[in-house]
Design a protein around this nucleic acid. Structure first.
Length: 329
DNA sequence: TAGACTGCGCATGCGG
DNA sequence: CCGCATGCGC
DNA sequence: GTCTA
């Protein structure tokens, strides 16, 4: 039994519970556990044998018990029982961008649709419109989502993503309406593979920038086109998000969207302990709301009494403690 | 052992 | 036509 | 479901 196999079981449990309308935080707990187990460097079977599962943050008594069951028997009773409650095709449908648990359950209950195949046929035949909350537009979006699911590959190697991102940044830089511009996310952290490309800008007049962004030649699909946020899929099959942020929050947004998520959570906790509040808009005093930082990323860390941490190190592997003690390499 | 767990922008449909 | 609620995604 | 106060 590998970590990936165990992770997959919990991920499926999360998906099924979500379709069944369970408490979202419970769903999130399973999903997070799956993620944690998948990214574990140690063998989950060893950890189970040594009874050290609960030492892992995010794994509590309940999940630890279930991991033991999986390791011992090769399966999870709860998982089998849940699987019996819904057709397997519903989980596939959940993978379609734009199809969430509510829509999946809606089309299943009302039309008996239990596979991506059937969903596609129904959408093409115009049988989805008329369902509450669904019109012709939603139908088209679902068809587009199915195409997207079929064409979209997994995470993109940095070697492919970086040149693509650089090209987009270079193109946007040409526009006079673009003031500051940066990448964020796993790309900026230089991870080996990246899930999507995040770009942040400040601009006094975002509309032309957004218009140019969604009409770049490499753009395959436009998922959203607003004045502060737009999302597209480029030919490499990767999603690119462009966000316009206020100049005084640029550093905060850069910090926030660069992540990692775990790094940000640790920073937030630290901020709270210092009587501060940190979010994508800046660092603020918790009591008065006075703004302490936000325009530049370096100030964000300075406001927490620590040196700027290079993006590559922001993984919550001890870099925050190191920074606080001034022993950052 | 009770309460928190981010909260906001976009797209869409609904209802006034 | 416009404001509001909902679903979705992050 | 997990964590914290």
């Amino acid at each position: 039994m590998t970590n990936a196999q165990v992770a997959r079981i919990f991920a499926e449990v999360a998906d099924i519970l979500e379709i069944l309308g369970e408490n979202p935080y419970r769903v999130q707990a399973y999903r997070r556990a799956a993620q944690i187990i998948e990214n574990l460097t140690e063998d989950i079977v060893d950890l189970a044998r040594r009874d050290e599962l609960e030492k892992i943050p995010g794994i509590g008594a309940s999940i630890a018990q279930k991991v033991k069951e999986i390791v011992a028997t090769g399966r999870l009773k709860q998982h089998e029982e849940l699987k019996a409650k819904i057709p397997p095709g519903l989980l596939e449908m959940l993978q379609i961008p734009g199809m969430g648990p509510k829509k999946v359950l809606l089309v299943y209950k009302r039309l008996g649709i239990d596979s991506v195949q059937k969903l596609e046929e129904a959408a093409k035949a115009g049988r989805l419109r008329g369902l509450p909350g669904m019109g012709a537009k939603t139908e088209q979006n679902i068809l587009r989502g199915i195409q997207l699911l079929r064409s979209t590959r997994g995470r993109l190697p940095l070697g492919i993503a970086l040149p693509a991102a650089n090209k987009i940044v270079a193109e946007l830089k040409e526009l006079p309406q673009v003031e500051r511009i940066t990448t964020a996310g796993s790309l900026r952290r230089m991870k080996e593979t990246i899930g999507d490309i995040d770009i942040l800008i400040t601009s006094p007049d975002p509309k032309p920038v957004m218009d140019r962004f969604v009409s770049m030649p490499m753009v395959k699909e436009v998922l959203a086109h607003g004045t502060t946020k737009s999302s597209v899929i480029i030919d490499a099959g990767t999603q690119v998000d462009l966000r316009v942020v206020p100049p005084e929050s640029f550093g905060a947004a850069q910090q926030y969207f660069t992540g990692s998520k775990d790094h940000n959570i640790r920073l937030r906790e630290l901020a709270i302990k210092k009587g501060l509040k940190i979010n994508e808009y800046g660092v603020f005093k918790a009591d008065t709301g006075e703004r302490l930082a936000g325009e530049h990323e370096e100030e964000m860390y300075a406001a927490l009494d620590m040196p700027w941490i290079p993006p590559e190190m922001r993984e919550n592997w001890g870099e925050i403690e190191a920074a606080l003690e001034g022993r950052l390499p």
